[in-house]
């Protein structure tokens, strides 16, 4: 009986395609740092409330460095640029997200806005986009 040649060839093509997918350049950064698309409509966009305030210029720069100057907040997750920061809600209702350098940022609701506090102590006020 003649062995079916088409099946192994098809399997090889599927395997090759899968391997090519694994080695593709798109989709992720290295080292497990996942880049994701920010949600198209879920959550809310938050931004620094008073970007011209000189008193918070330094902490605004720190927020920018981590992509936190404009974020999508969807549940406990914050999207900083294309980096998803998986947050946890603490007992006060604040959301704590880990940052790349080992620090954390805590987002605490404050009236219509929220306060972003770095673990180093600096704070800056945020507002929901579209609100004054």
């Amino acid at each position: 009986m003649k062995a079916p040649r088409e099946l192994p060839r098809a399997l090889a093509l599927i395997l090759a395609a899968a391997l090519a997918g694994c080695g593709s350049d798109g989709g992720r950064g290295g080292g497990g740092a996942e880049s994701v698309r920010a949600p198209a409509s879920a959550g809310d966009v938050w931004e620094i409330a008073r970007p011209a305030d000189r008193a918070t210029a330094a902490v605004s720069m720190l927020a920018y460095l981590h992509g936190l100057h404009v974020i999508v907040l969807d549940g406990e997750d914050a999207y900083a640029g294309m980096t998803r920061l998986r947050g946890e809600r603490d007992t006060d209702g604040a959301i704590v997200v880990p940052l790349a350098d080992g620090a954390t940022a805590t987002m605490t609701p404050e009236g219509d806005g929220m306060q972003l506090r770095f673990s180093t102590g600096e704070t800056v006020a945020f507002k929901k986009r579209g609100t004054s």
Binding site: R28, A33, H66, A80, G81, M82, T83
Partner: peptide, 9 residues
């Protein structure tokens, strides 16, 4: 990343 953005995406 720069402000949360990476290359290779």
């Amino acid at each position: 990343d720069v402000a949360g953005f990476r290359v290779g995406v």
